[in-house]
Design a binder for these strands. Sequence first.
DNA 1: CTGAAAGCGCTTACAG
DNA 2: CTGAAAGCGCTTACAG
Lengths: 334, 334
Amino acid sequence: MKNVTIADVAKQAEVSKSTVSQYLNKRYDYMGEKTKQRIQEAVEKLGYQPNIVARSLKQKATKTIGVIVANILHNFTTKVVRAIEDVCHASDFHTIICNADDDPVKEKYYIEMLRAKQVDGLIIFPTGDNRDLYQKMLDSSYPVVFMDREVEGMDIPSIMLHNEKAAELAVEHFLEKGYRRIGMMTTSLINHTTPRVERVEGYKKALRRSGIPIYKDYIISGEPQSLQTELEELLHLERPPEGILAGNDLVLIEILKYAKQKGVRVPEDLAVIGIDDVSFASFYTPAITTVAQPTFKMGKAGAELLLNIVQKQEETTKQASLRFEPTLMIRDSV
Amino acid sequence: MKNVTIADVAKQAEVSKSTVSQYLNKRYDYMGEKTKQRIQEAVEKLGYQPNIVARSLKQKATKTIGVIVANILHNFTTKVVRAIEDVCHASDFHTIICNADDDPVKEKYYIEMLRAKQVDGLIIFPTGDNRDLYQKMLDSSYPVVFMDREVEGMDIPSIMLHNEKAAELAVEHFLEKGYRRIGMMTTSLINHTTPRVERVEGYKKALRRSGIPIYKDYIISGEPQSLQTELEELLHLERPPEGILAGNDLVLIEILKYAKQKGVRVPEDLAVIGIDDVSFASFYTPAITTVAQPTFKMGKAGAELLLNIVQKQEETTKQASLRFEPTLMIRDSV
DNA sequence: CTGAAAGCGCTTACAG
DNA sequence: CTGAAAGCGCTTACAG
């Protein structure tokens, strides 16, 4: 079964390819009624389906954007991606999702691959370690929007949570509930990943504001695999924290696993707040108090910003960056 | 900044476009050493990146496959998709994921869209309600593989769990633990979705084999939103079940939510087993006994099968269908 | 060992 | 109101 092309339709309808193309693109201001009909019949008879690849080549636009996430395992990421897809879909854009797995090499591979595929723009949760590439995109004024993180000194807009506030909200809730010895645990800080750094900053600020001393020992960061042992040490300090703030969903899960395994009671032995409103928060026992990110709004904002840039209604510049407000979801874990 | 094309490279290197193309495609059996070098230098100097859209048009292959999932909310789906991506990535294929949201209209839209984008093949978690379209793909021998579900009478290979066995494993575990009054709850059966139907079948078989009567009242199905009220009724029967099998992860979550809200103790008041090994199973309290699907293996098998078909090493036929074995993960909820 | 030419399936000024 | 022609950026027999 040969693929039917616009030429076949033209022949069948006894008009030129141009006319068929006009018809298909709904540019029939002056097209004869019978012509339209003949083309429509030919299209149906032959079961013609346009070849988008050919169109893209000619139009130099694919109506597709790429999304490169740093790590698909974060619940936040999944949610944001869904929102991006929804927005794009509504504007008739398609999305290609790639997972860089926190690896700059993979990120580079995907950026190059997606650009080779001629996607019209990119939303990146940047690893931060491909500055030359980011710069190249800027130089060629290729549409890019960063999500969740920013890259210092790079004039690319970022969609971000108000991270300091998220941590402050959590710490203030601990304080209100009478906790004074509050720890914080986060995934690795070595890459200076924006949300992590800012959340730790917010944690410190909130404590300082209440005149509570900040113990270095109370601030833990590391890869998820090492968190269990870190936690073990933390809780065996002479004066261990009575409450702990999990910097994101993966950290929260490690804490809950540890608690379960060691018979640490939440919140009696250890109160917990997690940043990111995990799926099971509401029906876990105890229900987990979290700080929720407006994932849908953030995804939507990122997609809309990118599409605006693609459609030249906006400039790729840090000016366009947006911060979103976190919300404290009070439940039973503190 | 103009996009640099193969013509620019050719001019720069003072060779023809053909030669550059050969070089880029590593067809340089007989290419002069200096020629290669000149081309390589030109490529670097100009920062040339090939345009995959143009290549795809010519080669009539995009090295991209489409994945249309019925419902991205299932944990199973996410896992399988990741495995598919991994396999494709390793074979230098790209993937475009679309979520049909259990809606045949969306499914149709995506099938047509992806074919228009000239993807080389499709992995579909079929809604089952687009038989004409499925048939059309078969007729034009377009590569398709079904995942998770099969469509009756359609000669397309499916990658599936041994669903009956999954339910049997769960029921047998209930029985071993001394339970006799065992209910089953699943998402809607009206579309005869393979796994749901087969799991209910397995549940019945296992009971029958042990000579336990099957109560219609004990088998509940419906949309996730209505499950709470259904559950309420079920547990207020004169002789309510003491254990319940959740047909999938979404159902399990509804059950746990209900239990939490109504103070139903698991497993004391109600024992629970879920099909699908949810993320929180191991650290929930109580840890949830589940029947796990080999998600990674299944995704891998589906992707490999499709890629084989695309590369003409295998035929699109139901013969190629594969069933996978479930595993009982014994924990504390029964 | 390398190049000229045709062609993949579209779109788009432009001419009439 | 419709068509001929050029061109998007590649690849691929084929010729030499």
